[in-house]
């Protein structure tokens, strides 16, 4: 394994490689092709956003990258090593918050931490609880939180371990616009500070353009990459700048091809 990653570094290979990944489900002897020949790669410390219609296989792809589902075609490489099982170096924010109902917010957030002292753990948990704005709710059980608060606790849980790769499945779906924008900025800040590689599923095109270095648009049935966009805008990004809106529009039109206005994009 060590040799593999060293040679990968020598060849300057991308950090995360999705190589001919495909996935199907068998249901009642019916074969459902969910992902077909997915290929992309990204460098360490980049953010990739996946957008696509509901049911097109975004969560399925994220599960494959996380290693939770290794029963797929093709290969996924991170740092030159094939992903075959989950690892705590990959943090996951699930689409449903998936907090343990029997643990308080701070216990949920601290669950992943092992092998550090009590004080260190407490300090880290406190830092991330505050980061997602849940100060004062450390001792609350998930049933006492709103949907958006649970989602934020789930985000803190994934961040607290400082993972090398962060996988986020619509992490801001249940949040109000203000909290959402604040957390988007926070995520971008964390990524620039820590160099975390992030793969994020979102329904929000503006969010994708704000955060991502690369955006891929997935087609549904079967899920294929329909469009790949590199977002080369300077950071911090101005959501109202002309360039920003251009990228947004380009992706938007991918979803609503019929509404394409011909005079745009004749660069």
């Amino acid at each position: 394994m060590g040799g593999l990653s060293a040679s990968a570094l020598l060849k300057q290979e991308p950090y995360l490689v999705i190589d001919h990944v495909s996935k199907h489900f068998e249901q009642k002897k019916q074969r459902l092709n969910v992902l077909e020949d997915i290929n992309f790669s990204m460098n360490k410390g980049e953010i990739l956003c996946i957008v696509g219609a509901s049911g097109c296989g975004k969560s399925t792809l994220l599960r494959a990258i996380s290693g939770l589902d290794s029963d797929h075609g093709g290969q996924i490489l991170i740092g030159g090593n094939e992903v075959v099982a989950p690892s705590k170096s990959r943090g996951i924010v699930f689409q449903e918050h998936r907090l343990f109902p029997w643990l308080t917010v701070e216990q949920n957030v601290g669950y992943v931490l092992t092998g550090i002292s009590k004080e260190e753990k407490k300090k880290l948990v406190q830092e991330y609880v505050e980061l997602v704005g849940l100060k004062g709710f450390e001792k609350a059980y998930p049933k006492e939180l709103s949907g958006g608060m649970s989602q934020r606790a789930g985000i803190a849980r994934a961040l607290v371990n400082k993972p090398e790769v962060l996988l986020l499945d619509e992490p801001f779906g249940a949040l109000d616009a203000f909290t959402k924008i604040a957390l988007q900025k926070e995520l971008k800040r964390i990524q620039r500070k820590s160099g975390t590689t992030m793969v994020m599923v979102t329904h929000d095109i503006e969010e994708a353009v704000f955060l991502a270095d690369h955006i891929i648009v997935l087609d549904s049935k079967p899920g294929r990459i329909k469009l790949e966009v590199n977002v080369d805008l300077p950071v911090p990004r101005d959501r109202n700048s002309y360039e920003f809106l251009q990228v947004k529009k380009r992706i938007y039109e991918e979803f609503f091809e019929d509404e394409k206005i011909p005079e745009d994009f004749s660069i």
């Binding site: 996380s66 290693g67 939770l68 989950p86 669950y111 992943v112």
Partner: peptide
């Protein structure tokens, strides 16, 4: 699965 993903 969450617990598994964290290599608990």
């Amino acid at each position: 699965e969450v617990s598994r993903s964290m290599e608990t």
